[in-house]
Design a protein around this nucleic acid. Structure first.
Lengths: 214, 214
DNA sequence: CTAAAATTGGACTTACAAGTCCAATTTAGA
DNA sequence: TCTAAATTGGACTTGTAAGTCCAATTTTAG
């Protein structure tokens, strides 16, 4: 968690102000995009002044990087909060359902906060691109962690590669979110998550009792 | 193909100018994004004037819509040009390889021209969103066409739904492109396309002779 | 308490971008 | 040929956005 600007110590008040700026900026950026969100927007919604923004961040790009890091923690935190571990196929199915259900939230508008930023910033800010790449890695690692536990317990075939399965699932999630946002329909996201889950189910080892799900 | 502005007849020269504007704008928008491309950029690169842009397009949004339609035709045309029909699993594999190889083109930079525009414009321009939704439908229809042929020939199980398989493949393609662009690696795209192809292979009916591929 | 550091207000500069406007030139078609 | 329509040049307006600057206020720590 590179913080930079630590030559300057933040007081309690300063920390609160900085946090308020980051969270508000995150919401605005999610709704309007990075380029579509002006610093004046952020100032107005946070009740801060220009000098405050530039006191806590070197420039707009630095603020956007803080937004990326905050969103990354928020998203992964929300996921582990709802489903502590993706280490059973049942948990994976609930995870998929949760992702699909998220389309309703904003009436179909808004894709994945990280995916949208990645698309907008990857070729615009090298620092942001690297950060977003790491964000996806972290998110995928959380998924791979559950798959790995399944593999250790012998529920997934030895040949299954948790890291690759997690990455494939992430591509499905991102592509599904994008199409759902574009077509204002949960259909593509549902099909994407079903595909990702089936891609994992391929490596499930049959167990005594109940049959392979789905 | 809604053209609008047909109250005004275009001469041969006018058509050429308009086309030059659209193609150049498409390249700039692909490289810099829609918001990152100014009309002055387009003017400079096409050697046109402000009045020409506004002569052929109502406003910037209308130009962007023309870009979307042109890219849609270009992408689908390029695909059918390289692989006339995705009606064998071999053709599908070549298609997947072609998609993966496309990452090299711009040194990893640049995602899918349509996907990038969708992410940027879906919540910004309703007209553009609808158009992009239709673009994905057209592209998917081209994929579904091949799958349907396989189904008719009995190579795909009757339960297989070409439309759903095509949509799932499109989400994999888009998500894979996005992650590849973000991480400057073809790995996520390769895993995505493998997943999409496997998702189709699930419905392959075994045929005499060679075993199920992959 | 008091000096140094952190925090804040807000005006100002500079750059750029979308869109308007009008006049000049070229082309098409009768 | 001639005239109306299409095409083009380019200055201009208006709005916005990032970033700078300096002074005022508040807080922290010795």
């Amino acid at each position: 968690m590179v913080r930079k600007r630590q030559e300057q110590v933040l007081t309690k008040r300063g920390t609160a102000t900085r946090q308020r700026i980051v969270e508000t900026a995150a919401r605005l950026v999610y709704e309007q995009g990075a380029r579509g969100t002006s610093l004046d927007d952020v100032m107005e919604r946070t009740g801060t002044s220009k000098s405050q923004l530039y006191h806590y961040f070197d420039n707009k790009d630095a603020l956007l990087r803080a937004v990326i890091q905050w969103q990354t923690k928020r998203i992964i935190g929300a996921q582990t909060g709802a489903i502590p571990a993706l280490d059973t196929f049942e948990a994976l199915k609930r995870w998929g359902d949760m992702i699909v259900a998220s389309v309703i939230d904003n009436g179909g508008r808004g894709g994945c906060p990280l995916g949208s930023l990645a698309s907008e910033l990857a070729d615009y800010s090298e620092k942001a691109r690297v950060l977003l790449g790491e964000s996806f890695d972290l998110w995928e690692a959380e998924i791979a962690r559950g798959l790995d536990a399944m593999k250790v317990r012998g529920e997934l075939a030895p040949a299954a590669d948790p890291g690759e399965l997690a990455t494939a699932a992430m591509t499905a999630l991102q592509g599904g979110k994008l199409l759902a946002q574009t077509q204002r329909s949960e259909r593509p996201l549902r099909l994407a998550m079903d595909m990702a889950l089936e891609n994992i189910a391929r490596h499930l080892k049959p167990k005594r009792g109940p049959r392979r799900a789905r």
